[in-house]
Design a protein around this nucleic acid. Structure first.
Length: 222
DNA sequence: AAGTTGGTCAACCGCAGGTGC
DNA sequence: CGCACCTGCGGTTGACCAACT
């Protein structure tokens, strides 16, 4: 016997949300929070919806800090960079783009950014023979397990970037934008850093930008 | 004007992992 | 330890709209 369904599909509404439903959900969450229980929330809020549907609606559309559309060049580059290194882990990618959701980033990538980056890739390869990470999208990897990016010295050392990180290429570029704390957390989360602790960050110790010697090779990414 | 095609995006589905009992 | 429940995630679908034929 399989698992019980999360809700009684016969008695829940599906499809697009109406303004009334949005209002009910927004009012309830703003007043009571989610209570850590999305399953029970619909009945409490007076909605005939599945808890998962409510959660999705709130996270992807109703949350007050949500941004829709209007992606900047910086966001494009960041999405592309992270995607190339970790694949389609949209929640991780979205966590580095304030106001963006995984669903939004995923849709944006699938509908626009992938083509944009491919076009950029083609134009870049027609003008130069050198391959940089920005211009070497993996042809296709829909699953994390298939992700095998060759370690590239260029990735870390081709750039002339911000002060103090001039030997870290593209990563250094992001350092200038996000700062040490953001980047150390990001790299650690992505599995680039061999050891968060050994960097002596967060306890007053000196923070050193990662080099090839203290980064995981991409093929060993978790 | 009608039909077709392609793009966009909200929403759904099913699975994996975490957690509490 | 095993089970059930819940959340979060990534892939996919389908409705809607605009552009094109």
């Amino acid at each position: 016997m399989g698992r019980a369904p999360c809700c009684d599909k016969a008695n829940v509404k599906r499809g697009p949300w109406s303004p009334d439903e949005d209002m009910l959900l927004r009012n309830y969450v703003e007043k009571h929070g989610t209570g850590g229980n999305w399953i029970a929330l619909p009945s409490k809020a007076g909605l005939k919806r599945c808890g998962k549907s409510c959660r999705l609606r709130w996270l992807n559309y109703l949350r007050p800090d949500i941004k829709h559309g209007g992606y900047t060049e910086e966001e494009d580059n960041l999405i592309c960079t992270i995607y190339k290194n970790i694949g389609s882990r949209w929640s991780v990618i979205a966590s580095h783009l304030p106001g963006r959701t995984d669903n939004d980033v995923k849709n944006y990538w699938n509908t626009k950014l992938k083509k944009k980056m491919m076009a950029r890739d083609q134009s870049a390869s027609s003008t130069t023979t050198t391959t940089t990470p920005e211009s070497s999208l993996p042809s296709d990897h829909t699953t994390q397990t298939s992700l095998k990016v060759e370690p590239s010295e260029e990735y870390y050392s081709t750039g002339t970037s911000s002060a103090g990180h001039e030997n870290n290429g593209m990563i250094g570029n992001y350092w200038s934008e996000y700062g040490d704390g953001e980047m150390e957390a990001m790299l650690f989360e992505l599995g680039f850093l061999r050891s968060y602790e050994t960097q002596e960050v967060g306890d007053g110790g000196p923070w050193l930008p990662p080099t090839l010697s203290n980064l995981w090779e991409f093929s060993d990414l978790p």
